[in-house]
Simulated assay, not measured.
Amino acid sequence: MSKKAKLQNIFLTGGAGFIGSHVAILLVKKYPDYNIVVYDKLDYCACLENLNEVMDLPNFKFVKGDIFSSDLVTNVFKENKIDTVLHFAAQTHVDNSFGNSFAFTQSNIYGTHVLLECAKNCSTMRRFIHVSTDEVYGEGEDFDAKPMDEEHVLEPTNPYAATKAGAEFLVKSYHRSFKLPVIITRGNNVYGPHQFPEKLIPKFINQILRGLPVTIHGDGLNTRNFLFVEDVARAFDCILHKGEVGKIYNIGGCNELPNIEVAKSLIKILGKESEMDDYISYVPDRKFNDLRYTITSEKLHSLGWKEEISFEDGLRKTVEWYNTYIHRYGNIDSALIAHPRMTGSGGAEATSPTNL
C-alpha cells in the first residue's frame, strides 16, 4: 500500500454480526494504531456480545445506527475522520429472500447506495471495501465446470443474489464516475462462531444439540464450499492492506461438500452416529437451489493469503463454541424450522435487514 493510502480510521458496518465481528476483533487486536468504529443496528442476527473481546479496548468504538441514515453515517465519518469503509451489513439469508425480497432490495441496494454517497462526500476516504458473495455468479451447472474467476458474467438466480449483484454495479459506478477507491470481494459460504443459526452449519448444530433432526433441503446433494470464519477475517486483512483499488477478489476455499455430508459430519462430532437415521430429515427444497458455486481465488493467493484451517478442525471449533454459548441468541426456535422467515425480533414469516 502506498503512503498516500495509509489507513487509520475504519468504519465497519454489520460489525456485531457474524463475519464483521471477527474482522473487527482481528483488526482491533492486530493494529492498535488503527481506530475501529463498528456501526450496527443490532437486528435479530447481530449481538453485541460478539464483540466482548474488544469492547473495552481504546481503539474500538461501537455506534448503534442504521445504514439508511445518511445524516448519522456522515456525522460518524466526520467525527472519527473515517478513511476506510468495510461494508458487511446486508440481508444475507436466501430463504428469507423468497419470502420478502423487497427488504433485500432496500437493505442491500439502497443501504449500499447511502454508504457510497456518504463516502463520495468524505474527503478523507481511502478505501471502500464492499462485501459481496459468490452467489452473484449464479449456478455452477455441473461438476466439470471450470471455476469462475472475477471476470465471469454475473447470473444470479435468487432475489438475495440479484440484490448483491445490483449493489456491486452501484459500487463500480461510484469508482468510475467519482473515483471512489473501491474494492469488491466475493466469498464462499462461511461458518464458525458468532453465526446466527438460520444458516446451514450452525442450524444443524443447534438442531442436534436440542435433539432435533437436521432439515435437509431436497436430496441433500447440492454442494457448497465452506470457509472457516477466521480464515476469512485474515483474507479481509490481506485485501485491506494489499488489495488494488478498482479490483475484485474472490475468497474461496477447498472444502466443497454436499449438504448431506456436512450433516453427517456434525452428527458424528456430536456423538450421535449410532442414531444417524433418526437425526436426518429430508424437507421440500427451496423454490430454486443452485447446485454448486465454484470460484478460483488465484488473485487473492497472489496477495499472500491462503486457507489455513481444515474443515474438520473448523467444524470442531464451531461445535465447541455453540456448546458453550448455546444461549447467545436467546430463543432461536423460529430459526430452526425447515424454511424460516425471520423478523427483526426473531420471529417467523417476515424479514428485516441483517448482518453478515
Score class of each variant (00 low, 15 high):
I326C: 13
A24M: 02
F68W: 01
T294D: 10
L336G: 06
H217L: 09
S173F: 03
N96G: 00
F98G: 06
G20V: 05
G65F: 06
E53N: 14
P340Y: 08
L291G: 10
E168P: 06
V232T: 14
K172F: 13
I269M: 08
T92Y: 10
D83M: 09
F196Q: 00
G246C: 00
I260E: 04
D333T: 02
W321K: 03
T133E: 07
L221F: 11
P284D: 06
H113V: 08
F77N: 13
F11G: 01
L227M: 14
H113N: 11
P197V: 10
D313C: 07
I295N: 05
A348K: 09
D219L: 05
I295P: 00
V214R: 00
Q106V: 09
E308L: 09
K268L: 10
M55P: 00
V182N: 00
L227G: 01
A46L: 04
S265V: 01
H301E: 12
K172S: 12
Y191Q: 05
F88C: 03
I10C: 12
V76N: 03
V37I: 15
K41T: 09
T296W: 04
S265Q: 13
L227D: 14
T318C: 07
V214Q: 06
L115D: 00
A162D: 12
E261F: 01
D33S: 13
P58H: 00
I201E: 05
L170H: 12
V262F: 12
T324K: 15
I184S: 02
F143W: 15
L257W: 11
I295W: 01
I201P: 05
I239L: 02
Y160Q: 11
R186E: 10
M55Q: 13
D40T: 00
R286T: 07
S97K: 01
R186I: 04
S265I: 04
N75T: 13
D333N: 10
L291Y: 06
N222T: 08
N206E: 05
T163G: 06
A89T: 01
E151G: 13
I309V: 11
G187D: 13
V171R: 01
P193E: 12
L57V: 08
A5R: 14
D40S: 08
V131M: 01
N158P: 08
Y279S: 05
C45P: 02
